[in-house]
Design a protein around this nucleic acid. Structure first.
Lengths: 222, 222
DNA sequence: ATAATATGTTAGATGACTCTAATATTTTAA
DNA sequence: TTAAAATATTAGAGTCATCTAACATATTAT
């Protein structure tokens, strides 16, 4: 097992490569809030440890070994988040920062027990899939709310980002994972969307918010 | 808040000074498993931060500020241990190492919630008192099993050391915190003690084991 | 296709924490 | 009361992870 810092690099490389395939030094520097030379030297170190494949001026890619380590950390993070919500009764908007710390706890017993208590869960409180103990992860196909036609009904399956302010915003709107929503109106001018919610209320979401909400279509015509 | 290393020094200084009043560089080095010069330079650093009072070739003492920090860490450690046992169902013999990691988690929300779920507990699974959120700690008066006369009956209130092998040993003997025991025989030759236990069984403990078991006398004659 | 811009690397330094080897102080015991 | 033993400190170096300043390569846009 590597250091805490090393684990954070691996995790960030994984997250960024999910989005874009390859990761660039500058992206990583931005994400980790360190300067370019710090990333450069750490990436070299990770390369000598065979955790990443890296050639100067080219992108960074995790090796199989690196990917495995990343998935182990992500597993711990997501198990921790769900545990904090389900067992400890914390809100989904406040568990990210705690899980950032718990993900570095080195104890198979601890995580085995959490997994057991939660009955081998498949998704975290934000709808993200939890890799199994072999690092196998369910790859959701994701449709964003902004891509749905008017009249369609869909279930919220996940939200992007653990940013507290975003989740506070969703709490204020009364939206949760699993909620069913119907697209009432898509506003051409600003990209905002009006939803019909189970609560019977109509909810207006800006484009910026709606694009971070992932859904599965359940009814194709209303 | 200091670094993880700093926290571990503070905690160890507190623990050692409980036993002996003042702490010496060599004791600390042994406890933390580092060499003397490492301790020396760290102690100097802690002194500039006003966490310890220290003069070369003299003992080390925590300042009020240092003591407060130590108690905060101990509180987190002991809350974590109890949580791991009561909520997560782990054994008292396996929680120490996990708590060593959890004690460094920086989240008042996390610990506030644990405290709440456990209903503001006063003692950890090994009978050690949990400091309250102001750092106030109940100071038990401790009688060791080896100091009891034959015929006395007492309740086990605590055990010293979180060493797994010791706790495994007590598990094998069937002894737990809260158990009532009667001293049947004190062997002069080797200091071993024979107990009558609630299980009706007679239990033989070596001196080495008995001296780490703390009790409160409940019946002064049998 | 070359100049401007963006991105990446190297060199050298720093702070936290550790080490070994050498030296100093304190304690203890002959 | 001085020599031996135990304990503590200083000096100097190494690793990890970061930084700034200077330089190198790649991309883009005129």
């Amino acid at each position: 097992m590597g250091s805490l810092t090393e684990e954070n690099y691996i995790k960030s490389i994984y997250a960024l490569s999910e989005a874009t395939g390859e990761v660039y030094v500058s992206e990583l520097a931005k994400k980790l809030d360190v300067k370019l030379p710090s990333v450069n030297s750490m990436v070299k170190r990770l390369a000598t440890k065979k955790l990443v494949a890296y050639a100067p001026y080219k992108g960074i890619k995790l090796t199989e070994k690196g990917k495995k380590e990343a998935l182990a950390i992500i597993r711990k993070h997501r198990l921790a988040e769900l545990f904090l919500v389900k067992v400890m009764g914390l809100g989904w908007e406040e568990v990210h920062d705690i899980a950032e710390q718990l993900e570095h706890v080195n104890s198979s017993r601890f995580y085995e027990r959490i997994d057991e208590l939660l009955n081998r869960p498949k998704f975290d409180p934000h709808g993200e899939p939890i890799p199994d103990s072999n690092g196998k992860i369910y790859n959701q196909q994701r449709t964003s709310l902004i891509d749905l036609e008017e009249g369609l009904t869909a279930t919220i399956t996940a939200v992007t980002e653990d940013e507290k302010s975003f989740l506070d915003h969703l709490n204020a709107k009364g939206l949760q994972i699993g909620d069913s929503v119907t697209i009432m109106k898509r506003e051409m001018f600003d990209g905002s969307i009006t939803l019909q919610h189970k609560s019977k209320k109509e909810i207006l979401l800006t484009h910026q918010v709606a694009e971070r909400i992932w859904v599965e279509v359940t009814v194709t015509r209303s």
